[in-house]
Design a protein around this nucleic acid. Structure first.
Length: 859
DNA sequence: GCCAACCCAATTTTT
DNA sequence: TTGGGTTGGC
């Protein structure tokens, strides 16, 4: 492309090192790394010049193409590693890409400073030019929590009712604006009016002003500021134009408008140097811009976007499928390459998924295929159940069965749910069964209260102007500094335009406060001062411990007798431990907001339970898809709020779910589900009707569970026998009937007939049943989140590696009857009985439970 | 200033 | 049913 030569002058060949090696490799025969690619993949790798869109269906080797492409560019010596911009959405994806490129090109990845998430690259750019947007380069990055607290303050400062106008709502609105790349002056009048009696715009502006004063950014700003920077400073933009010779984008279907604008500024360059880049200003103009506007013609640098419109499932958080649908209009002359050859799933799974997704209208259209069709492959199963308890039980049994018959690893199985409340039922059931599971998702490590508190302490020490952090912990642990005192400090600080901590320091010397709070405040301030001084001399991990210790924060949790406290202390330890790899407290803090997530515990063999959203990008031998019922999936809210496009996004979610399975997919729906504590009858999801019968087997309801050995091989073999009967099986009919009227003929599966006859929609199971297990307890054991699970790390690991129900080794237990134990979910208790690795424990608060040994700790 | 009794709402989630 | 957040009493 033309302007490429104009700006890119540093020829890689000029220097030694990697590039030299790459140069040397040039001209040899087909490099190894290309050999294993299919023709389409290879085309995508080799089309290095100009705009390229790779439509990569599920399981078609998307990441491979991306990484090989980078390797190819380096290998041909087309660019230095530092001249390639490669963006992903998540840190995980960035990490994986880095690893995989590393495998291909060796140490050269280390020289790829511009491989990262949109946000981390945004930070990098911003730190270099912070002063141009009014920040200092050591700005703080606020997360959602900080953001909300800040907004709340602003709302209150405006004398608005913060209940009528919740900060969270406004944070979401603002998020939406920032996702669209809108500054306060850009937001539509209607939006501005929608909040706080028309004060939306003012609030947004006030919020931004406040962030500037705090020298802080929120996540949205990490995109917004660079966009503003590029627009206002064409020279800076030109510098990046010169730098980036190749741009690669992963998961393009998930980009929002701001990310699109950002990319476009970087990718699209004026053909003539006429400072027109400054004019690429107004987002609206840009949105509709073709290859040229306002008399300036643009050329696109070598931009390669990879994505799959059928897997766009983040519309609700601002992703614009339209970006990918419009690619060839945005970037004229784009090469579009489709990857449709699937290497993951069976023909049945692909058939089912393709047929389903074909019901969507807004799509570019691709059809996955595989060469590896095998008559032995099981069809996609549809199972009916009575209620969600039965669903959990039956899936649990199916899992055990696969394990027993096929030596199936638990690690290769996953249960993918639509909404996280569905997880609990499975957790309860699996705890009872003694089946290892791991929950993926949920609150992240750095979002945990104790971690955030600790970080707030560190922030105060490193950045004494960090008012939000100070605010957070000034009275944590409780020191007797209540609202009244804090408000005085705030007023004082505002009046003199000094940070809170400075204000507190000064006030501690005046008569404005009562003696008690004054003394406390003085103590707090001097603590921070002291810690700040130690920053230079004491090793940061030690200082961190010292801070947590001396502030009384650790003690606070030690004195807390709730079941979560030990886990929290463990998390604090882990936090300090994770600081090791950073040089100092400030450098740790710099990384923490963006990059910190903890690796899950992969050693244990366990079934994964997660939402469909978090399953994107993963694959499993066997996938269970429970809860295919109208209202839940598709979710009622998507339907209500999103209309047809909402439904289409739900359908894509179903598509994502199906395509996670490599060999087996087992779908479930039930007739009764408890929602918000009430039993409601439900009808099967419309998506079930959208599956092609040829690839689906509807299971006989009564045989897929029942507790006596389950279904035999004949069920699989005799699949054709059921073909005609599809959708007319008892389970199906029963479910339909349950919807229409009320049939009590269904086997309840739990021996109870706890609901009476005909009209009530509520079915209340009074007593009995197994679901008691988890009731009344808030935090299920979230195995796999590093830190929570570490609470059970003390015990022998191997125990968790097998299905405990089968491994009855009476003497193997670390416990004896009468031992006191602690369980993350149930708290403290006494061992009443031991059966292999399963313990029966009388919990002090939760009553008697059967639990896995691996889940409890000796006290 | 702190704690316990109410009230309300209730997908999906990354950075 | 659950959890978070607010209110009102001590």
């Amino acid at each position: 492309m033309t302007d490429f030569d104009e700006s890119g002058r540093a020829a890689p060949a000029a220097t030694g090192g990697i590039a030299a090696r790459a140069m040397a490799a040039r001209g040899t025969r087909t490099p190894d790394y290309l050999a294993g690619l299919n023709p389409e993949q290879r085309a995508a790798v080799e089309a290095t010049e100009g705009p390229v869109l790779v439509l990569a269906g599920a399981g078609t080797g998307k990441t491979r193409v991306l990484t090989t492409r980078i390797a190819h560019i380096l290998n041909l010596g087309l660019a230095f590693p530092s001249q390639i911009l490669a963006v992903t959405f998540t840190n995980k994806a960035a990490r994986e890409m880095k690893n995989r490129v590393g495998l291909l090109v060796g140490g050269a990845v280390e020289g790829m400073p511009w491989l990262g998430t949109f946000h981390s690259i945004g930070v990098k750019i911003l730190r270099r030019h912070a002063e141009l947007v009014g920040l200092k380069s050591n700005f703080t990055i606020l997360d959602t929590d900080d953001q909300i607290r800040l907004i709340k303050q602003l709302i209150q400062a405006e004398n608005l009712d913060d209940k009528r106008w919740p900060a969270r709502t406004f944070a979401n609105m603002m998020d939406g604006w920032k996702n669209k790349g809108l500054t306060p002056k850009d937001i539509p009048e209607g939006d501005a009016r929608a909040f706080a009696n028309g004060k939306g715009r003012e609030l947004y502006a006030a919020y931004q002003a406040r962030l500037m004063a705090l020298n802080a950014c929120d996540f949205g700003d990490l995109l917004m500021h660079p966009i503003a920077l590029f627009r206002a400073h064409p020279d800076v933009l030109a510098e990046y134009h010169r730098r980036f010779k190749y741009i690669l984008v992963d998961e393009y279907q998930d980009t929002n408008v701001a990310q699109y604008l950002w990319l476009r500024l970087l990718a699209q360059r004026p053909k003539q140097r006429d400072d027109a880049s400054g004019k690429i200003g107004q987002s609206q103009a840009l949105m509709s811009a073709k290859g040229s506007d306002a008399g300036v013609s643009y050329a696109t640098v070598n931009l390669c976007c990879v994505g799959d419109d059928d897997q766009s499932i983040y519309g609700w958080r601002g992703a614009e499928v339209d970006n990918i649908l419009r690619f060839d209009k945005d970037f004229p002359g784009a090469t579009v390459i489709r990857l449709e050859r699937n290497y993951r799933s069976t023909a049945h799974i692909l058939g089912a998924a393709s047929h389903l997704i074909a019901h969507n209208e807004d799509r570019l259209g691709k059809t996955l295929f595989t060469d590896a069709a095998n008559p032995e492959d099981p069809k996609v199963e549809v199972n009916a159940g009575w209620d969600s308890e039965e669903e959990a039980r039956a899936i649990g049994e199916a899992i055990e069965d696969l394990q027993r018959r096929e030596n199936h690893n638990l690690n290769d199985m996953a249960i993918l749910v639509r909404a996280s409340f569905q997880m609990r039922e499975f957790e309860d059931r699996f705890v009872t069964m003694g089946l290892n599971y791991r929950v993926i998702g949920g609150p992240r490590f750095y979002e945990r209260m104790e971690v955030r508190d600790a970080l707030a302490y560190f922030r105060c020490v490193c950045q004494p102007a960090d008012d939000l952090a100070f605010d957070r912990i000034v009275n944590t642990p409780k020191r007797g500094l209540g609202d009244a005192t804090i408000r005085l400090v705030h007023d004082y600080a505002r009046a003199r335009a000094v940070p809170l901590i400075a204000a507190a320091g000064e006030m501690a010397e005046t008569e404005e406060l009562k003696p008690k709070p004054r003394a406390t405040l003085r103590r707090v301030v001097s603590d921070f001062r002291r810690w700040s001084e130690l920053l230079a001399t004491v090793k940061h991990t030690e200082l961190a411990e010292q801070i947590l210790e001396e502030s009384g924060y650790t003690e606070m949790w030690q004195n807390d007798r709730s079941a979560e406290a030990p886990g929290r202390l463990e998390n604090l330890k882990e936090l300090v431990r994770s600081m090791e790899q950073y040089e100092s407290l400030p450098s740790f803090l710099e990384h923490v907001a963006l990059v910190m997530d903890t690796e899950q515990n992969a050693e244990m063999d366990a079934v994964s339970i997660m939402t469909l959203h978090s399953a994107k990008g993963l694959e499993f031998e066997t996938v269970f898809l429970p809860g295919w019922e109208e209202g839940l999936f598709p979710h009622q809210r998507s339907l209500d709020e999103g209309g047809r496009s909402g439904l289409e996004e739900e359908r894509r979610l179903a598509y994502v779910g199906l395509t996670r399975g490599k060999r087996r997919v087992k779908i479930w729906f039930v007739s009764n589900r408890r929602i918000h504590g009430l039993w409601q009858s439900t009808i099967p999801s419309r998506f079930l009707d959208e599956l092609p019968e040829a690839h689906v087997e509807v299971m006989e309801a009564n045989t897929s569970y029942g507790g006596y050995g389950g279904y035999g091989a004949s069920r699989w073999d005799g699949a054709s026998a059921f073909k005609e009967a599809a959708y007319t099986t008892p389970g199906w009919r029963r479910a339909q009937a349950a919807n229409a009227g009320f049939t009590n003929t269904g086997k309840s599966g739990r021996g109870g007939d706890g609901w009476s006859g005909g009209r009530s929609r509520e079915i209340n199971y009074g007593e009995g049943g197994t679901a008691r297990a988890g009731r009344g307890h808030n935090q299920p054991p979230r195995q796999g989140f590093g830190l929570y699970s570490s609470a059970s790390k003390g015990g022998p690991r191997e125990i968790e590696g097998e299905l405990v129900a089968k491994s009855v080794i009476p003497d193997a237990s670390r416990f004896a009857e009468g031992d006191r134990v602690f369980h993350l979910k149930f708290g403290n208790g006494t061992v009443a009985n031991i059966e292999g690795n399963k313990l029966t424990v009388d919990f002090d608060k939760a009553g008697q439970k059967r639990v896995l040994e691996g889940f409890v700790e000796p006290v």
